[in-house]
């Protein structure tokens, strides 16, 4: 199935839903790794929105990008509780370990405040991180 057929399928799957934009954007990101400009125009057309509106929603959420980033993503919680538990001291080492191969992202609370610092890779959440465990996670990502 080519990309445009896949996109059409995703849009069709949400046809008639109220508030279909976000579910579509999630599915498109999952399928293509990003929401390309051409896809934005198709989504806008399908939902009878302007291209600008779709662009605005994509820009609001960090999860949505216009170009794909194939690097693995390690999201490090930088919210207050993890800060209090020392996450900021780990950032430099994580970035060194990541180099150009891995992307270190920010999240704001993973809901595990008592056991921080925490990170997430995909759907897996990792708690009680110290420098060595974090570097290992990054290296294995």
């Amino acid at each position: 199935m080519d990309d445009s057929a896949r996109l059409a399928e995703i849009i069709a799957a949400h046809a008639g839903e109220e508030g279909a934009l976000l579910p579509i954007l999630h599915d498109v990101r999952a399928a293509f790794g990003c929401i390309a400009r051409a896809a934005q125009a198709d989504i806008a057309q399908a939902l009878n929105l302007s291209r600008a509106e779709v662009h605005g929603v994509i820009g609001f959420y960090h999860d949505f990008t216009e170009t794909p980033d194939p690097r693995p993503l390690v999201e490090l919680c930088r919210a207050e509780a993890c800060q209090a538990r020392g996450v900021e001291a780990l950032v430099a080492a994580a970035e060194r370990a990541a180099g150009a191969r891995v992307r270190i992202g920010k999240v704001w609370c993973l809901g595990l405040c008592s056991v921080g610092p925490n990170a997430r890779i995909g759907d897996d959440v990792h708690a009680r991180l110290d420098e060595a465990r974090l570097v290992a996670l990054v290296a294995g990502a």
């Binding site: 400009r37 302007s50 600008a52 509106e53 779709v54 662009h55 605005g56 820009g59 216009e66």
Partner: peptide, 21 residues
Amino acid sequence: GTFALTIAGRGFDSQVSPGGE
């Protein structure tokens, strides 16, 4: 009624944008 403008980005990065074009 054209909806050609949006606020792109969020927080401090918010910017008026004609849809990124």
